[in-house]
Design a binder for these strands. Sequence first.
DNA 1: ACCCCACGCCAC
DNA 2: AAACGTGGCGTGGGGT
Length: 483
Amino acid sequence: MKSLFEGLEFKSLISRIPSARGPVGLYPRPMSSLDAAGTRRGAPAPATPRDAASLATLNVTEELDKQVTLILQKMSTTGIIVDLQFLKGLSKDWSKKLQDIEQQIYSIIGHQVNLNSPKQLQVVLFDELKLPVVRKTKTGRSTDEDTLRELAPSHPMIPLLLQYRQLFKLVSTYVDALPRFVGSDGRVHSTFNVEGAATGRLSSQNPNLQNIPVKGEMGGEIRKAFVAPIGKILLAADYSQIELRILAHLAQDPGLIKAFNEGLDIHAATASKIFNVPVEKVTKEQRMVGKTMNFATLYGQGAHALARQLGVDYATAQKYIEEYFAQFPKVRVWKAEVLENAKRNGYVETLWGRKRYIPELSAANRQIQAFGERAAINHPVQGTAADMIKKAMVEIDKSLLNIVDRISGEKKTINDKRLTINGLYSMILQVHDELLFECIPDNVGEVGKMVKDKMENALKLSVPVLVDLKVGPNWGEMKALNH
DNA sequence: ACCCCACGCCAC
DNA sequence: AAACGTGGCGTGGGGT
Ligand SMILES: Nc1nc2c(ncn2[C@H]2C[C@H](O)[C@@H](COP(=O)(O)OP(=O)(O)OP(=O)(O)O)O2)c(=O)[nH]1
Ligand SMILES: [Mn+2]
Ligand SMILES: [Mn+2]
């Protein structure tokens, strides 16, 4: 669990409603952030004492989380197949590339160095090669990706180092690490934590299946290792622009509401403006930049950071931010209201009343206050999205059992530790606003329709909620599923 | 074998 | 580094 202001001297806690539920999974492994009782490390005291009545009665989100916990256990028990042979091939190819790059770098600088050690790298870059220090970390001179991009034209080893970093990350964190989690059934069984994030989002660990690479060709290659078993396919369902739709509802912003009623893609529209291309010509990569700008601006990014991130000058970044809030005027008003309430109550909450206490709001240090304010703005939006998909998961889990009962007279469910596991259609992953299922190809159209319906109607918003469906033989080759 | 921290970076 | 937010993990470096 992260502190709100990691870099600052004194640490505080993010208080939250206590709950008796901990992580869920087959293989606890090292329970890094939670103790055996599922209570939060570093937060020994309950955030809010419960009165006698609330000890016995779960509120809406507690009841929701209780039901979700059972589903998470099933997801963990089912697991997902990882193609070990495929990863072995990737490892071989990419490790050779890594060695090549490493040798090239050594011959350029004239000696060996541990390229994975930022400390050793600093000496090479800034002392030996005398490259300019772009920015500093707490303890020294930064060598992160942004820094290296700026330094790239100054020395031939930098582009190689960037390649090395990317490749090493993918190999060490995924290609070589995932096989260590594969059980004798050929599957990885991640642990999902129902209260993994302060906002109500889940988290996933051992391994984390919510941060599997997706960008670029190499990301797609890694996702190809997540496969459906013989005779089944994968079905994926991802909400469209979900937090912007929730924002539209919470802020009741006319610009956002109109856009969604007209079926517009706001991420693409933002990208169209940034890259000065017609919206229909926006590429996937450009849309991603638009998406990041939309959320970063909403959650308080400044013009300086935006300018750096987009590679534009400060004035242009300022203009983008102004235009954003001019386009969606009620967003500023809503943010001010949230902060006012937050400071009065000491907490913020989602549409469903999931509370997050933010003591930083009353901190003496202004910088800490500012961190608290940005968290306070984020929680109602990110947390409502979490409530929404959790509700959908509960409804979908019920419906799947009904569908199975109907289409097959024979018993296709397995009872395992009081969990009813469905052998035909299994929910196997949740990635914040996406659900992944393993299912027999029969009736995938009907199941997809049901999943889409449950997700789109889990919460009633004042704008349409849309879900994109995809199917494929593996997670790297998913194609749109129409009707 | 386990722990911590800093750095850096993957995803949503 | 920074006035986007929410996470988890691998490595290096140091320690028990
Ligand atoms: N603050 C912040 N939130 C993010 C960021 N990336 C993703 N999120 C949150 C907001 C998104 O609505 C939500 C789901 O991520 P997705 O990648 O599915 O994006 P989204 O649903 O907005 O667009 P989509 O139509 O699915 O491509 O996660 C980010 O960079 N910053
Ligand atoms: Mn989405
Ligand atoms: Mn998504």
